[in-house]
């Protein structure tokens, strides 16, 4: 993977995989109300994919220089499994951890390539993932940590 298009294709595929992952989990979800929530997550991933498609088509620019707030909530939480009996708290943990892993992947890749357009794209993708992480972490802060 060393061209910008290849990287973007990979990222787009990752978003699609995430959407499929949540849609599949929604289909199996046992806890009341979880199906709708997981379908919302899937829709969120689809919207990330649309954004990247727009970037690839040149209709939208990534913003590698933008600062994204890192709440660091997921960094210290335990790994949880994505079972059919998943709770809302755990579903959010799964989502935050996935976004965090993606953020780290693009950041690491960006660190390894020389200055140039490719580096900028990787940094831009890392920022996108940081924003997604912030989205789920804010949700966790608002709903799970509401009384805390």
């Amino acid at each position: 993977m060393n061209s910008v298009d290849e990287i973007l294709d990979y990222a787009i595929d990752q978003e699609q995989q995430a959407a499929d992952f949540y849609a599949d989990l929604a289909g199996r979800a046992e806890k009341a109300g979880m199906k709708e929530i997981l379908l919302d997550f899937a829709a969120e991933e689809q919207s990330h994919k649309q954004r990247l498609l727009a970037v690839k088509a040149g209709d939208h620019k990534l913003t590698p220089e933008q600062q994204v707030l890192d709440l660091k909530i997921s960094d210290y939480l335990v790994e949880v499994g994505a079972s059919a009996n998943i709770s809302y708290q755990d579903a959010l943990i799964v989502a935050m951890k996935r976004e965090r892993a993606a953020f780290q992947l693009y950041s690491d890749m960006a660190a390894k390539v020389p200055e140039g357009h490719l580096k900028e794209v990787l940094q831009g993708l890392a920022k996108e993932e940081a924003k997604h992480k912030l989205f789920f972490e804010s949700e966790y802060d608002d709903r799970v940590l509401r009384d805390n």
Partner: peptide
Amino acid sequence: AIGQGSDLEFLSKEIQDQLAIEWG
């Protein structure tokens, strides 16, 4: 003591599916 959630295990899955349940 960071909060508490509901225990709806006394309702079968079929019953739960018929009741609108949001965020537990």
